[in-house]
Amino acid sequence: MNHFSKAILLLVTGLSVACGQTETETETSLPQKGTAIPVEVISLQQSSFSSEITASGTFTTKDETLLSFKIGGVISKILVNEGDEIKAGQLLATLDLTEIQAGLAQAKLSFEKALRDQQRVERLFKDSVATLEQLENAKTGLDIAAQQVKAAEFNLNYSQIRASKSGFVLRKFANPGQLIASGSPVLQVNGAKNDSWVLQVSVTDQQWNLLAVGDPAILYPATSETGVNGSIIRKSQAADPQTGTYWIEVKPSEDKNLNLASGMFGKVVLTPKVQKEGWQIPYQALLDAQGDTGYVFVSSERKIAKKIQVKLGSISDQSVQVLSGLEGYNQLIVTGSAYLTDGSTIEIKNK
């Protein structure tokens, strides 16, 4: 064998030995079949906790109002536009008053005539010329004429639209010169200047059952980078027929500087005061989580691993709330689960 062939043989032999060592080291680093798998465990202790509920919805003032004229007519002026700020009592719109004022003048003339008739019949009755029935009819006619004047004055008053509270104009449905029917909406306004903002969110029936009026909350409006403290002020008593969910209204404790608008998106974290009994376990101990269920390994007599299904509560980056499934167990496997199957032999090696 020449020197070149010997060199090739030594190189191949060296590579074979190196590969053999790598495979041996890899095999010894993984648990071997039939041997105990090293794991770490923690003690399970049941405790009480509240599960946070996250929901989203839109802001509203709950006092959005459609304003209209009491009687129909031709719109003379609309003095505001969408987005304008308004104050309580401010004149917003008015009808052309020509016909309405004419009606009031006619009612007043009818009243004056009825008054003269009543006075004349009263004098005739004293002279025994008119009967009691004629006197009573004259008084009734005077009363009717007086009520007609009140009705005409009322219609004149409500031929103008004034702001019932301070807020903003949300929508305008008509324009000057338009003939509008009685009761047709002209403007939509809210009372946003009265600190009446609420966030209305939807929750499931189970979440609705946990929440109560007065429970604390943290709101996250789209216009704020930080959360705002608040509380639940109202719960619906019927499900939405389209979605099957229930609404919850959350009011911020302070909303003057939030710069909110009707329909603006917001999130909220609700904390029910109702306490649940369960376990708080490390996130790495949870396997195959899906929805509100998952799996964990517990130790049986500190020798055998047992895989069990658990019902989950809130899940965070560091821990998981387990509501049920761990009853009767006191040791939870937190590391080594990747190598385990139900019934695996284990060796506890806590640090």
Rank of each mutant, 00 (worst) to 15 (best):
M264S: 03
N190G: 11
S236E: 14
P221T: 09
S231E: 15
Q200M: 14
P241I: 09
A238V: 15
G230A: 09
M264L: 15
K267W: 01
I233Y: 11
D205K: 03
I233M: 12
L286Y: 07
K256R: 11
R234M: 05
A305T: 06
N209R: 00
V198A: 07
D240T: 08
K267S: 13
P221S: 05
I232D: 02
D255S: 14
K273R: 07
G244F: 05
G263R: 12
Y295I: 02
G291S: 08
V268A: 14
S262A: 13
K307G: 03
K306Q: 15
L219V: 11
Y246A: 00
Y283N: 11
Q280R: 15
T271R: 04
Q237I: 02
S262E: 11
A285Y: 03
V198K: 06
E249D: 15
T293W: 09
E225L: 09
K276E: 13
K256N: 14
L211E: 00
K235F: 10
T204Q: 00
A285H: 04
D195R: 13
G263N: 08
P241L: 04
S224W: 02
D292V: 12
T293P: 01
Y220T: 04
L219M: 10
L258R: 03
F297L: 10
G294H: 12
P241R: 03
L258P: 07
L199G: 07
S299T: 15
Y220S: 09
A212F: 01
S262D: 15
L210A: 06
V250L: 07
S196P: 08
T243G: 06
V298L: 11
D215W: 02
V198G: 06
L211M: 10
S253D: 15
F265H: 05
K306D: 12
S236P: 02
S224T: 10
K303N: 12
Q275H: 00
A217V: 06
P221D: 12
N194E: 14
A217C: 12
Q280A: 03
K193P: 00
D215Q: 06
T226Y: 05
K251Q: 14
I233A: 07
L260A: 03
K193S: 12
T204G: 02
G214Q: 13
Q207N: 13
T271H: 04
P252R: 10
V198I: 15
V269M: 08
G263P: 03
S202K: 06
D195I: 02
G191N: 15
V250Y: 04
E277Y: 01
D240V: 11
I233W: 06
V228M: 08
W208T: 00
Q284G: 03
D292E: 14
V201H: 02
T204C: 00
M264Q: 14
K251V: 13
G244D: 12
V213Y: 05
N194F: 01
S236V: 03
L219R: 03
R302W: 00
P272T: 02
D288S: 07
F265T: 04
P221H: 05
N194Q: 14
W197L: 06
Y246F: 14
